[in-house]
């Protein structure tokens, strides 16, 4: 999480970050997934952010909607850092069980030392495919803010499709969670 913020801040200073509007209606994400929005979102565009699309309602430090579409076997699910002393990279493997997928995202979200607690993990249908839904709390290392998060994921033809949303427990998560749940319900994965 901190790395992501750092990349955005550095890119912003370098003039490489841009924000674009995501309009209401159907939106195609990658080659095989689509979602339907009942209101606009902001998409963050910057180099080196990793394989997920990043959307936000309030701005990057506040809330983030990560959308993964067609993540391949062994593909890293975050902006990777390499070299001595770099934190561990977390990659998707197509033979992962649902709780392995939740654990992979836990690893990704705690690379900066943030504290994660799984609150619930259950089977659901996501994008028309059998998948998982998990809820978590995350105490962010950088500022000790308590976030609440929800994640949906499914594996289709060996590829990962997922939507994760996290925002501060106070005010912001309750403000936007209904819209996020609407997006996850609208998700369709092309078989």
């Amino acid at each position: 999480m901190r790395n992501l913020l750092l990349i955005v801040v550095v890119s912003l200073l370098a003039g490489c970050v841009s924000m674009s509007k995501v309009d209401s209606g159907e939106q195609k994400i990658g080659d095989r997934m689509s979602v339907t929005l009942d209101g606009p979102w902001n998409r963050i565009n910057a180099p080196g952010l990793g394989p997920a699309e990043i959307w936000t309602m309030e701005g990057m430090p506040v809330d983030q909607l990560l959308i993964y579409s067609g993540i391949k076997n062994e593909q890293i699910v975050h902006a990777a850092r390499t070299g001595t002393g770099a934190p561990k990279n977390f990659a998707f493997r197509s033979n992962m069980l649902p709780d392995d997928i939740a654990a992979m995202f836990e690893g990704m979200l705690t690379r900066d030392g943030s504290r994660y607690k799984l609150e619930k993990l259950e089977p659901v249908t996501f994008g028309g495919v059998k998948g998982l839904r998990f809820e978590y709390s995350l105490t962010r290392k950088i500022d000790s803010v308590l976030l609440i998060g929800v994640g949906y994921a499914a594996v289709s033809k060996g590829e990962l499709f997922s939507i994760l949303y996290a925002a501060p427990k106070l005010t912001f998560y309750p403000r936007h969670i209904a819209r996020v749940e609407q997006i996850t319900k609208s998700a369709r994965i092309k078989e």
Binding site: P98, D99, A102, L118, E119, E122, P123
Partner: peptide, 10 residues
């Protein structure tokens, strides 16, 4: 356990 529902499905 928080993953009890998932385990039951397994």
């Amino acid at each position: 356990a928080p993953d009890a529902a998932m385990i039951k499905s397994y």
